[in-house]
């Protein structure tokens, strides 16, 4: 019995991490999936959110800025706000870059942000990071605290999902898709393309900041390693593409599924015979790469491909809905 209780707790941890990653993939979906903005600096916005949360809520500690002891929800809002501000700044200078160029610029900016958190030790305790970050509901007894935290994460994912679904089917979302598919046509139709792209980038960045704020609480420890580009940027892209770009359900599914693959492969590889003991960890990374290739080749549209909102009734019959190819994206 106790054994199954353990599995249940592990399942909750998968849901928590999957949920936090889902917040990130949903944020990325706004930018990449809807609008086609190739933001490869997720880790940067994530780090801003995580550090804001950590600094605003931790008790006073001599080695980093802190002692403000804000209530957790308020700090989460602040984390979102500051990520949005940073996102606005980045978007202001980079938004006219297309596709891969935007990707590379944002990778560079994210690395610079990480270096700032690493080097400005007076505020962040440098590479040693911030510990003892308060976590929502942690005063409840086990397992209620875990359950409550999972519930909070999943509720946040749900709220974001509903809001984004609404935005997607609303005129705003249609303009985004139009910009992604054919920017010149959207501009010709009188849409202020740059402004829409900027909005999309800022909203996505705010969500990434929220993801960081949740991660800081869950781990209770934040250091520059947490925003390492491998697990904080590329993994998020992998999740979104595997789940189904431009599909909000796909984004959530991709996060949950890929995190499970990322985490649970180790349960398999740690069972390899002794002579592989240490090497099993490398086998695991290899397996992750292989599963990714498998998904890519078998389901190139993602597990849940994009579904366009139905044309407005007034337009139906005027023209056929655009073919769902996704291949016009760069």
């Amino acid at each position: 019995m106790e054994q199954y209780y353990g599995y249940f707790l592990y399942l909750l941890s998968l849901l928590t991490m999957g949920g936090i990653y889902a917040v990130l993939t949903l944020g990325l979906n706004v930018q990449w999936g809807f609008t086609g903005l190739f933001n490869a600096g997720i880790a940067g916005f994530f780090a801003v959110g995580a550090y804001v949360q950590a600094i605003l809520t931790t008790p006073i500690y001599a080695r980093h800025l802190g002692g403000y002891e804000w209530p957790i929800p308020l700090a989460m809002l602040a984390a979102m706000a500051l990520s949005a501000v940073v996102g606005y700044g980045v978007a202001k200078i980079c938004i006219r870059l297309r596709a891969d160029y935007l990707a590379i610029a944002t990778i560079g900016i994210a690395e610079i942000i990480r270096l700032v958190f690493k080097n400005e030790g007076w505020a962040t305790n440098g590479p040693r990071g911030i510990s003892q970050i308060p976590k929502a509901f942690e005063d409840l007894p086990q397992p209620w605290n875990t359950l409550a935290f999972v519930a909070m994460v999943l509720a946040i994912v749900m709220v974001i999902y509903l809001a984004l679904e609404r935005a997607r089917t609303a005129p705003w979302g249609r303009v985004m898709t139009a910009i992604r598919e054919n920017e010149a046509a959207a501009a010709a139709a009188g849409k202020n393309v740059e402004r829409f792209r900027l909005e999309s980038f800022v909203i996505g960045s705010a969500l990434m900041g929220l993801g960081g704020a949740l991660m800081a609480q869950y781990l209770k420890q934040i250091d520059p390693q947490v925003s390492d580009p491998l697990t904080a940027t590329f993994l998020v892209f992998v999740m979104l593409i595997a789940g189904g770009s431009a599909n909000n359900k796909g984004a959530i599914l991709g996060a949950m599924l890929m995190w499970t693959v990322w985490s649970a492969t180790e349960i398999l590889t740690s069972r390899l015979p002794d002579e592989f003991a240490i090497r099993s960890a490398y086998v695991r990374i290899f397996l992750i790469g292989l599963i990714l290739q498998f998904i890519l080749q078998r389901r190139p549209q993602g597990i849940l491909p994009e579904r366009r909102p139905k044309p407005h009734p007034r337009l139906r019959g005027d023209r056929a809905p655009a073919a769902n190819t996704g291949s016009t994206k760069q």
Partner: peptide
Amino acid sequence: KPFRTSPAIMLVIASFGLMLMIRSVIQF
């Protein structure tokens, strides 16, 4: 090769997966 006509992002992600695979083979 399977992605010659696909959007570039597919190749980027494929190369990302390959990066992990090559490195783990070397480490192994």
